[in-house]
Amino acid sequence: MIINHPLLGPRDISEFVYLGDASLLKRPSWDGNKSEEKFYEYLYLRDNVAGIHKELWFHQYGDRSWLIVTRNTISHEITKVELATDISKKLAKSNE
């Protein structure tokens, strides 16, 4: 498996550590309404996608970037690789 790092180009899977669904970026607010329920959903409820899936990979043996990899879980084709910071910054902006 090869991940095309947005800064470093194509890198082998052995340089990465997998975390999980990229929905982990959408951490709920701690003091909002029903925060416990929202955290429960955030942490435990995942879509089990057969198809396009966004997931988090850490470039542990590299530049220590967290990446969001868009991967087809059936064909394993990777269509997009983004820096998690870029996405989380956008998310933060849209939440403002």
């Binding site: 970026l25 951490r27 988090l56 850490f58 542990q60 820096l83 998690a84 989380s88 910054k89």
Partner: peptide
């Protein structure tokens, strides 16, 4: 040591990037 460091980077890059 490794996993805490990774966790900290996750919190910074993915949760509180600003």
């Amino acid at each position: 040591a490794d996993s805490v460091y990774r966790h900290l980077e996750f919190c910074h890059q993915c949760l509180w990037p600003d």
